[in-house]
Every structure is written in structure tokens, then in C-alpha cells.
């Protein structure tokens, strides 16, 4: 109940922002009968209507995980974000080993297998992508080799 109501309200807010942004859009001198605004306005309107329905007739709540699980999910999320930033400057091997190992540990918390998964995936996928499939991956940080 509550989850759907919150979701519906969030969608209403986003839809209103979308509509406002569409109305504020600059138009060009090149226009057609419909213009750049109309279709986004229709989308925003339909979303608004549908989210009112969700707010008024919410489904039963899903089973949300506990605080601890949410923290772990948040941690996994930040590891992925860090990985995205690290991939270019740090090369493929080191960030991949860390990210894969951490994810593995998050799924099943055992140190040994997680370490092996990280190292194995990093090395194995590098060989597969670089030599098997011929993708242009950079293995190690450029700084090491100058």
C-alpha cells in the first residue's frame, strides 16, 4: 500500500517536472503542426493519469529487505559506480578483480571463494576479451608503463 502510494507520488512529481520542462522548451523557427512539445506533453499527461490510479488503488506492499541488506545493496551500488570511474584510468585488470571479488562476497560472504572469483574473472575475462574476441582493452594503468 504505502510503497505504491510513494511510487505514485514520485511519478506524479516527475511527470509534472517533465511537463513543465516540455512547456519551457525553446522552439525553433522550423516547426510542424505538432511541434516538439506536443508528444512529450501527451506522455506526461498519460503518466500523470496512470500514477493517480496507482495512488488511489495501490497494490499490496512487496517484501522489502531489512536495513542490513539495503546497506549491502548500497555498498554494491557504490562499488559498481567506483568501478565505472576506475575502468579508464586504472585499466581493466585491477578494478575488475576488486569489483568482481566484492560482488561475489556480497552474494555469498566467504573470503576465499570471493578472492578466487575476483582474480579468476579478471584474468579470464581479460584473456577472453583481449585475445579471444580482439577487443581493445587496456590491461594495466598506463602510468606503470608510462
Amino acid at each position: 500500500m504505502a510503497s505504491d502510494r510513494i511510487f505514485g507520488l514520485v511519478v506524479i512529481a516527475v511527470a509534472l517536472a517533465f511537463i513543465a520542462s516540455a512547456l519551457a522548451m525553446q522552439t525553433s523557427f522550423l516547426t510542424d503542426p505538432v511541434g516538439s512539445k506536443t508528444f512529450p506533453l501527451i506522455i506526461g499527461g498519460v503518466a500523470l493519469l496512470a500514477s493517480f490510479v496507482v495512488v488511489l488503488k495501490p497494490d499490496a506492499d512487496p517484501v522489502w529487505p531489512g536495513v542490513e541488506t539495503f546497506l549491502r545493496l548500497g555498498f554494491a551500488l557504490s562499488v559498481l559506480i567506483g568501478y565505472a570511474y576506475a575502468l579508464k584510468p586504472m585499466g581493466f585488470l585491477i578494478p575488475t578483480a576488486i569489483a568482481a571479488g566484492v560482488l561475489s562476497y556480497q552474494i555469498t560472504p566467504r573470503r576465499g571463494p570471493a578472492l578466487l572469483t575476483g582474480l579468476g574473472l579478471s584474468g579470464g575475462l581479460y584473456v577472453l576479451f583481449k585475445f579471444g574476441l580482439g577487443l581493445g582493452l587496456v590491461g594495466l594503468p598506463k602510468a606503470i608503463f608510462g
Binding site: L80, A99, A100, L103, S104, T108, G118, G120, L121
Partner: peptide, 9 residues
Amino acid sequence: WVLLPGVTM
């Protein structure tokens, strides 16, 4: 715990 990290990477 091997599969999913693999899929992600």
C-alpha cells in the same frame, strides 16, 4: 557467486 559477478563484468 561466480556467475553474477561474471555477468556484471
